[in-house]
């Protein structure tokens, strides 16, 4: 769990420096997904990342969503999986499906 605290401490430090920050959390997984439920990725308004929500395959799309959430301040849920054909779904290289919650740190 230290992992989580390190990521959240980083998010807090960014926020205290005056940067906008969003936090993405894996809230559900199906089949084999690279990170377990609870895994986190913090993103600042320059696109800096701390932590991870996958093995690296969906982080790019999550950062984009995080930047939007920083602006809108409305939380979002994202879903990724190999079967997804829509433009936003990057697809997990390992198969499996993952749902990710993205919220702003206010």
């Amino acid at each position: 769990m230290n992992d989580t605290f390190e990521i959240l401490s980083q998010a807090r430090a960014w926020r205290l420096e005056g940067r906008a920050v969003a936090i993405a959390t894996v809230v559900a997984t199906w089949n084999s997904s690279p990170r377990q439920v609870g895994a986190k990725l913090a993103v600042d308004d320059r696109g800096h990342m701390s932590g991870s929500v996958s093995g690296g395959c969906v982080e790019g799309a999550v950062v984009e969503a995080a930047l939007e959430v920083m602006q809108s301040r409305t939380p979002r849920q994202l879903e990724f999986g190999v079967a997804d054909a829509d433009a936003f779904a990057v697809g997990l290289a390992c198969g499996g499906r993952v749902r990710i919650f993205v919220e702003a740190l206010e």
């Binding site: 605290f5 401490s9 998010a11 807090r12 926020r15 919220e103 702003a104 740190l105 206010e106």
Partner: peptide
Amino acid sequence: MKLTLLDQALDLAAG
């Protein structure tokens, strides 16, 4: 997430 709630959670976890 509110920063105040995060602060509180991190303090508790540190303890």
